[in-house]
């Protein structure tokens, strides 16, 4: 059953089109990733799902109703939204829990308990982010929207946050996750929508996206004896061969390795320093978004 339904969503700011005919469904219990360069319309889309913005065109429904009417069922963690400097962690948690009928306390699991008396303005980036997640989850939402969840966190804190997300999902919460970390999308998301210029250019599982990349496999080696490049090019699995110094680099489909090693065995050539590279979601992303703005932020 689809818990979030977005149909033909359109939103513009003045002359600039932010989102243009975006449609997708998110199933209950799913972690749905939204990927794309800056300005691709990711945040606008999730803001419409959160009921913070009114779409110009199309429709959005959460739990079968307009988002603004089910606000207490949606937990939102937003980019660039802070709390008063001098508000303490414990005060923020108790204030926000007073807005909901059945508040949930995530502070223990998010490691906030030792910091309850600390003022917001003095928290590290990681702690601010964890508090923000705790506040997003405090209303026991059925849908959690997490925008740029791990931006600014160190690698350890990022991994810790991922396990929190997995824990949240296993509690039955559906998650809409905006990210620009491929590793994060690959690890967490069941499906990913890749945005570019306000549209969805691909929507698939992370592995499905990877398999779309041409030359999804690459084999490099140094042949022990002379090898005719034309023989490699004749293999149906091969799309491209290049020679860099002594090293031969062959790109092609997934069965490339088997095809290349069989050929070498027939010619009694040994492949020295053999390396196989599998395309990653990174490659898929660069290809889908035209290679812009990948490592930004």
């Amino acid at each position: 059953m689809a818990i979030i339904e977005v149909r033909d969503l359109g939103k513009r700011y003045g002359p600039r089109v932010a989102v243009d005919s975006v449609s997708f469904d998110v199933a209950e219990g799913e972690i749905f990733g939204i990927l794309g360069p800056n300005g691709a319309g990711k945040t606008t889309t999730v803001e419409c799902v959160a009921g913070l913005r009114t779409p110009d065109r199309g429709s959005v429904s959460v739990l079968g109703r307009p988002p603004a009417s089910v606000r207490s069922a949606i937990g939102v963690q937003l980019q660039a939204s802070e709390l008063p400097e001098r508000m303490r962690v414990g005060e923020a948690l108790s204030l926000f829990s007073s807005f909901y009928p059945a508040p949930a306390d995530w502070s223990e699991r998010l490691g906030l308990t030792p910091h309850l008396r600390a003022e917001f303005g003095r928290l590290s980036g990681g702690l601010k982010q964890r508090l923000s997640i705790a506040l997003a989850l405090i209303g026991s939402p059925r849908v959690a929207i997490l925008d740029e969840l791990t931006t600014g966190l160190d690698p350890q804190a990022r991994r810790d946050t991922w396990s929190v997300v997995e824990e949240v999902r296993s509690a039955g919460v559906t998650i809409l996750l905006v990210t620009h970390f491929m590793e994060e999308a690959e690890r967490l998301c069941d499906r990913v929508a890749v945005f570019r210029d306000g549209r969805i250019v691909a929507l698939d599982t992370p592995s499905g996206l990877v398999s779309r990349v041409d030359g999804s496999c690459r084999v490099r080696f140094v042949p022990s004896a002379h090898l005719d490049v034309a023989l490699l090019q004749a293999l149906p699995e091969v799309t491209e061969v290049s020679v860099v110094g002594e090293q031969v680099v062959v790109s092609g489909s997934e069965n490339l390795l088997h095809a290349v090693t069989s050929l070498l065995a027939r010619k009694q050539i040994v492949a020295r320093g053999l390396r196989v590279d599998q395309a990653s979601l990174d490659d898929a992303y660069v290809e889908l978004t035209g290679g812009r703005d990948v490592a930004d932020h």
């Binding site: 913070l52 939102v76 802070e82 807005f99 209303g139």
Partner: peptide, 15 residues
């Protein structure tokens, strides 16, 4: 300051 820091925006996501 509440507006600039997104405090108001943060609250508008709650009931």
């Amino acid at each position: 300051t509440y507006r600039e820091k997104g405090v108001l925006r943060r609250l508008s996501t709650t009931p």
